[in-house]
């Protein structure tokens, strides 16, 4: 090919490339805008209860058996949510040496939201497992308290502060 033809070809190519570049620049500058959005989800654990206080009253007895009739309450509902893995819900009482007997049991636990342990007796302040196997889930259960009092415990009043915690296994 003659040098003159090559020169013309190069010039045409240059003009074509320039026009393309200008068109691209105009598009990028004018017709669009960009924004980077980062969404971060960290480990979150949330636990809540619908009833902040309740009273159990033992007011009846079985004369033939010689025992008081236990009082029960299932009005409380416990809720939890976690997006973490291998969590459990524990429970602890503030009453180190109770005079009466208070038991706790989880009832109607949301399927696949955790595994309830058998009934817990609050006879000290030790933290006890309440629901285990809580992984990336949300759930709820009824909290059933059962209070009983031996005859020899007499009459009186006791207060328990019960603390529920969602924590690592």
């Amino acid at each position: 090919m003659k040098p003159k033809r090559i020169s013309i070809l190069l010039q045409v190519l240059l003009v074509f490339v320039t026009v393309l570049a200008l068109l691209e620049t105009a598009h990028a500058q004018g017709a669009s805008a960009r924004q980077v959005v980062t969404l971060e989800v960290l480990e979150l654990n949330r636990i809540d209860i619908n009833m902040m206080s309740l009273t159990l009253t033992i007011q009846d007895a079985n004369a033939q058996a010689g025992i008081t009739i236990p009082a029960a309450n299932s009005d409380g509902v416990l809720f939890w949510t976690t997006n973490g893995e291998n969590k459990k819900i524990t429970v602890a009482s503030s009453n180190a040496s109770p005079r009466f007997e208070l038991k706790l049991m989880a009832v109607d636990v949301t399927p696949r939201a955790g595994v309830p342990v058998p009934e817990i007796i609050f006879n000290d302040t030790q933290t006890k497992d309440f629901i285990t196997g809580v992984t990336k889930t949300s759930g709820r259960c009824q909290i059933r308290y059962t209070a009983s009092a031996p005859i020899q415990a007499g009459v009186g009043r006791e207060t328990y502060v019960i603390t529920y915690t969602i924590t690592g296994s």
Binding site: R34, V36, T38, L39, T81, K136, T137, S138
Partner: peptide
């Protein structure tokens, strides 16, 4: 919660 933790980076 069942999706666990993580992050997404979008260019909008």
């Amino acid at each position: 919660a069942s999706q666990g933790t993580g992050s997404d980076v979008h260019t909008i």
